Amino acid sequence: MGIYTFKEWLSFEDAAAWLSDATGESYDENSILRLALKGRVPVHYWPTDDAQIVLYRVEHDLASVNPVVEAFVRLDLSGCEPICLVDGPVPIRNFGIFFPSSQNNKAPGMVGLSAYPEEESGEYGCYRLGEDDRPQSIIEGRFEVLIHLSDLQQLRAGLPMPRARQPHDLIMGYANIDGVMESFPLARSTAEWSDYPDSDLPLPQLVGDPESKTEPLLRVLGLAAHLIADLGKQLDAHEQIESSKRRYMKGVDPNISRISQALADVASGIRLEGHNFKGAGFSKLLTKALRELE
């Protein structure tokens, strides 16, 4: 089975292997890079360090200059307005400009990703979320450039001379979190993606004494439970309606069932499910962690 098996989002290495197997021809990462630089296959940006990507309305330092944000641009940070979070991989509309910029992080200014949301006026760009909600260069942290499987399939259908294609856009919408009545604005790629890229983390392997390795982590988690309980107690002190209290404390101890349910609700809202980190899984883990503090 190939390195791309069961993946919806493929790296250039994955894409080269997929295309080689699908056509019987030989492709490598440089082949895919050339196709992307020529605009023959759409590509996306994905942070691999858990950074939040935000769509901003941007202002330049010099009003007479209107550069492409994939180049190094000097922004007027005080005039940049955050619009909404971007969910999932972000379309790279000008990869031919972005790629050389990403290879040089010493130039002045910041690199972003161009965006043209519908029914919006002004200039927009996607940046990492920095301090005080201000934009941070998209190349500041770790990231990957990925290709969606459906785009790779269209590329194959157009061989041997695939035509240039329009990059994907961002579409604006709203998202809801389970248990919360309000919705919040969210942008996402027009690519018909269904899941986030694989993290490619190694499968867990138990070597030696697993308890000795997990004990420090459990103690940290136990301390976190106490902190959550204490913060909940402080918030409850300000509630005027008894039914609105969170009750994260049970006497002088953390209320494990309430904390675990709250964590499970948050996990569900951000699609972090599995690995026993839901409901009873949280409760059992917290109970074990608190015992390490006794």
Rank of each mutant, 00 (worst) to 15 (best):
C126L: 10
D253Q: 05
L223H: 12
C84D: 03
S268A: 13
N255A: 00
V266T: 13
E13W: 09
S283M: 12
F184L: 04
H226A: 02
E8S: 03
G179Q: 02
E81I: 09
S150G: 08
A22N: 04
D61P: 00
A22C: 03
S283V: 03
C84A: 12
F12A: 11
A164W: 09
N66I: 09
L55I: 07
E70V: 07
V207K: 02
F72H: 15
T48F: 12
S150L: 14
P89H: 14
G208Q: 03
Y116W: 11
H168F: 12
D28R: 13
G279I: 06
E292F: 08
I171G: 02
T287K: 15
N66V: 11
T214E: 12
L186C: 10
P197A: 04
S78Q: 15
L263V: 01
I147K: 08
G222Y: 06
H44D: 06
D198K: 08
K106G: 14
L62W: 10
A224K: 02
E144K: 15
R34V: 06
L19E: 02
D87N: 13
G141D: 11
P216N: 08
D195P: 01
A107Y: 13
E25H: 12
R40F: 08
D87V: 07
P108A: 05
I241C: 10
K38S: 07
P162S: 11
G274S: 05
G179S: 01
M1V: 10
Q205F: 08
H238M: 11
N66W: 12
P108D: 04
Y124E: 04
W46R: 01
D151L: 05
G122N: 06
H60Q: 11
R219N: 07
K250C: 03
V65E: 15
E13Y: 12
Q234D: 06
R156V: 13
V266S: 11
E273L: 13
F72R: 15
D133E: 07
D151K: 07
R291G: 04
A237K: 08
A15D: 00
S283Q: 15
R163N: 10
T287L: 14
S64F: 14
E118W: 13
L62I: 09
L272W: 14
E144R: 15
A15I: 00
G96H: 13
R188L: 04
D14Y: 03
V180Y: 02
Y248F: 11
P160A: 12
Y248H: 05
Y27E: 01
R34C: 03
E123G: 02
V73C: 14
R247S: 06
D132G: 08
V86L: 09
L37P: 04
Y27S: 02
D236I: 07
G279V: 05
S183I: 01
R93F: 08
R93V: 14
E118Q: 15
G24I: 05
N176S: 06
